[in-house]
Amino acid sequence: MKIDAKGLNYRELNERIHDAVSNGVEEIDLVNVLGQRYIGTGLDREVTLNIYGTPGSDLGAFMDGPIINVFGSGQDDIGNTMNGGSIIIHGDAGNVAGLSMRTGKIFIKGSVGYRAGIHMKAYQDQCPVMVVGGRAGDFLGEYMAGGKLILLGIFKKEKDPVAGRYIATGMHGGVIYVRGGVNKNQVGKDVAVEEVDNEEKAEIKSEVEEFCRHFGITRIDDIMASPFVKLLPKSSRPYGKLYAY
């Protein structure tokens, strides 16, 4: 099924998507998307949305199940508090991608803005994953409480650092893998930077393979040849000592 989003406001467009999904449609091509917010927000079925254009903010917020392919760039708050499904962005993403996501995967071919993956959470077998092909802005993984964030730094200008400042401040769970490594002074004080052993590298590889599959990238071994570091919280209680009773 195809929906032409031209001239539709977000409420009309999303109403059509929800109607189609409740009528059993399983795959929808959305063409001429331009800035409409909340696409996929609140959808709880395993449908596929192919978006051509530039979707607005809160793409896939609170969603639980769909696969969203964006053939273009996304804006802010992609996958906000999402609970399942995948979002695949063929361009770049704006700020605060994956805020508080608790399950599902986000793959971004290009770069993300500030505060990507902040306060991601994991619980039991629910573990959110975000893979970024380019670079990330400041405060990557702030307050991170669970899940996996993989930063590849492939699609970026040579001179740009792979991530900004204050990486993972307040992190108290989960793990961030950075290809190529980070400077100690970029990282929050509650965070330990460690080497990645071979076993873990295999785990990273399986996510990177999925990433490459989505974007038709073939040089997986090249990518994996570079060293990776992992960022971990020093404690699950970063603020335990701040209070007197």
Binding site: D58, D76, D77, N80, V96, L99, R102, R115, I118, H119, K121, A122, Y123, Q126, E142, Y143, A145, G146, G170, H172, G173, S236, R237, P238, Y239, G240
Partner: peptide, 21 residues
Amino acid sequence: ISRTRRIPSGTDAISPAPHHD
């Protein structure tokens, strides 16, 4: 509590000062 908040038990449950969105 961990079940309703959906975070592992024993970890701090932090509500950031602002909503980051």
